[in-house]
């Protein structure tokens, strides 16, 4: 670990040509005791997320909170405007015309829930991120085309420059590359 920090190594990354190999590799790596690792794929693969131990997401909760705030806010705004701030008699309807407030309440619910979904997703993923070391890796551009990558970070307790590389080499990759910080 000490060594890795000194030369500014972020980790080691292995490139695979099929998703099955990556899934297998991710499972092996987890089983071998590595914890600080991430996989990079051109499209979502459920098995990879599972193999890396990503279960559940806090996002649905955020969206629920967003929706509840939107509903309360939307109805509250209309109630406050129509009953308290600016009461008007419109065709003899009651000031608190809750039936007429349904559409706007619905829209504000959806709006805040959707904003929570998108902003929450970005926040949980730490995006936008202008710089990330993994882009320094050779051939990493292919991660957005047709290649599958598995990166073991130097931060990992078990990380060792030589041992980790030979471990990765044993998983049948196309190649293993250094990722500089």
């Amino acid at each position: 670990m000490e060594y890795a920090r000194k030369v500014g190594l972020y980790g080691l990354i292995a490139e695979f040509d099929t998703s099955d190999r990556l899934i297998h590799a991710a499972e092996q790596t987890r089983a071998d005791g590595y914890r600080k690792l991430d996989a990079y794929t051109p499209y979502p693969i459920e098995e990879v997320s599972e193999a890396l131990g990503h279960h559940g997401s806090r996002l649905p909760l955020l969206v629920l909170i967003g929706g509840i705030l939107g509903a309360l806010g939307g109805f509250g705004l209309q109630y406050w405007v129509s009953v308290i701030a600016y009461p008007l008699n419109i065709g003899g309807r009651p000031l608190n015309s809750w039936i007429a407030f349904v559409p706007v309440t619905f829209e504000s619910t959806v709006l805040l829930a959707a904003l929570a979904a998108v902003l929450g997703m970005l926040a949980l993923n730490g995006l936008p991120k202008p710089y990330h070391p993994v882009f320094n890796a050779e051939r990493f551009a292919l991660a957005s085309r047709d290649r599958y990558f598995l990166c073991i970070e130097a931060e990992d307790e078990k990380f060792d420059r030589e041992a980790t590389e030979s471990f990765l080499q044993g998983l049948d990759p196309i190649g293993v590359y250094e990722v500089e910080n």
Partner: peptide, 25 residues
């Protein structure tokens, strides 16, 4: 692209967000 790198952890949240958005839309 905001620094998207196709991380498995990101895809996981991404897919959840996309499905939730679909459910809202």
């Amino acid at each position: 692209a905001m620094g998207w790198r196709g991380s498995a952890a990101h895809w996981h949240n991404y897919e959840t967000a996309y499905l939730l958005l679909a459910g809202l839309a």
